[in-house]
Structure formats: structure tokens, C-alpha cells
Amino acid sequence: MKLEKEAKKNWDLFYKRNTTNFFKDRHWTTREFEELRACREFEDQKLVLLEAGCGVGNCIFPLIEEDLHIFVYACDFSPRAVEFVKKNPLYHPERCCAFQCDLTKDNLTENVPEGSVDVVTLIFVLSAVHPDKMKLALENISKVLKPGGVVLFRDYGLYDHAMLRFKSASKLGDNFYVRQDGTRSYFFSKEFLAKLFEEAGFQSVVNEYVLRETVNKKEGLCVARVFLQSKFIKPANLQTGSGLLSYKSSKEGKQED
């Protein structure tokens, strides 16, 4: 209960310590998620995206640089992270709208028009939410997503190296752990994730483990990484012609997290 109450403070302190230097920019997003290109009916069509849990903008700014026909709503639990987004030289209100939001209780429609978003990205975000509140976050996201819109998901998978490093004293519940700084992380199975999204009203399109290896040449270490990469659609009247159901699994190695 203490960790839940102090979750916002702990993430804010994380960004105070690390500023914009902890995560690397995610230039792999459009290669991994073809929908960011394929869901347009014509080349110059504006794509409206919600980056739920944007951090300091490591995902959104590469997208904004690469794609002139995209508008991004970006929200994060941490007010400090949102301020870093707004101070980025690439941040312009005509291309991006950043705001602070607790996905489990703050109504997204206060900042994003209902049913206006084509694509939602949930990249290493839902794992930081208490399992009991994950469904609330997904139902909140569903309010702003268009019928036929898609959620692109990537997060920690069961038995990832980060999970195996935790000591027993760090365990809060099944597959749920706390780090030394008070931030928490859940590790997903395919079955748990599929059931979670289906209970929130989504249909599963793709739900796969992605296996990678992280090599530390300096220390001579090679560790196994396990991620879950998935795509879920908000049901519409069988309108699949927009390309939202297309999928391409990239085999290239990329920076993760």
C-alpha cells in the first residue's frame, strides 16, 4: 500500500536522478510496428497517436522527426518527465500535446477527444502498474481510441533476465517485483496479457514472446532478454481494410527498453 501511494513520487525521483539520460531513443519502433505506417489509407494522411507512458520522449521524438504527418498525444505518470518532454527542442504544440496523467484514475478524455486516436503505444509502461489496476488503464485508453484502432504493446516477458535478478525479498506478488528505488515491475505471460485485454474489450491480433540477448563485452556477459510484443484492436464493424491488422515480425536485433 505504501509503494502504491508513493508510486508517482518514486517515478518523479527517478527522472530527477536520471533526467533524460537513462533510456536511449527508440529508433526501432517503426521497424517493429509496421502499423505506424500501414494503417493510413493514403500516404499524407495524418496519424493521431497516443503514447501512454511517454517518459522523457524517447519514443515520440524519433517518430515526430521521421514522420511529418503524425500528431502525438503524450502522457506520463511523472510530472517531471512531462516537463522534460515539453523542454525538448522538437516539442511543438502543433505536433505534440504532453500532459501528466495517472492512467488508472485520470480520465484521458480530459486531454484527448473521445474516439480520436488511431494508434496507442504501450511500451514498457503497463509493467509499472499494479496488476489489480491494469484493466482500469486499458479501459481508459479504450475511450480515446477509434473503433478499429490498435494498441501496440511491448513489455517485459516472464523469466526475463531482469526478473531473474530479483531477490525473494523484492517480490510483491506473482511476477510482480519492487526495485531498490521503489519503482515496480510486472513480468507478463502471453495468457495473462491476452485475458487482460480481452476483459477490457479488445481483440487479440498478435501476442508473441520476443527473445533477445544483451551482451556486455566489457564484463564478458551475455544475458537472455524476454519481451512480450503484442497488438490488440478495438472492435469495429469488421472494417479491416485500413491495414490495422497487418503484422510483420522483425528479426533484427535492436536496442530495448
Rank of each mutant, 00 (worst) to 15 (best):
Y15G: 00
L196I: 05
S142E: 11
E208S: 04
A162D: 14
K9G: 03
V223P: 01
N18M: 00
I70H: 07
L245D: 05
L3K: 12
V150I: 13
K2P: 08
E139C: 13
K143C: 08
K171G: 03
F84M: 12
I64Y: 03
K143E: 12
A236E: 09
K5N: 10
G115V: 00
C75E: 02
C96L: 08
A162F: 06
T240E: 10
V48A: 01
C59R: 05
G157N: 05
Y91E: 01
K133A: 05
L122S: 02
L36E: 04
T240P: 01
S204D: 02
I60R: 05
R26K: 12
G241T: 08
D160H: 01
E213M: 12
V125E: 03
E110T: 10
G243P: 02
T214E: 13
F232G: 07
L158Q: 13
L238K: 04
N237R: 12
V151K: 05
G243F: 05
C75D: 06
N216Y: 10
S230C: 07
V120E: 03
D257Y: 14
L13H: 09
A137P: 05
K251R: 12
D76Y: 04
L164E: 10
F71S: 01
G201K: 02
F14L: 04
L3M: 06
F61R: 01
E34C: 15
G173A: 08
S142Y: 09
E219T: 13
G55K: 07
A224T: 15
Y177H: 04
Y209S: 08
V205W: 06
E110H: 11
L13C: 00
G57T: 07
C54V: 10
E41T: 14
T104D: 06
D160R: 00
L244S: 14
Q100F: 09
L193F: 02
S170I: 00
K231H: 02
T19G: 11
R80H: 06
A224K: 13
E252V: 11
Y91M: 06
C39D: 08
C101E: 08
T19E: 14
D76M: 03
L145F: 01
K190L: 15
C97T: 03
E191Y: 08
F188R: 00
H161R: 07
E139G: 15
V215S: 07
R212V: 05
Q255G: 15
K190P: 00
E34M: 10
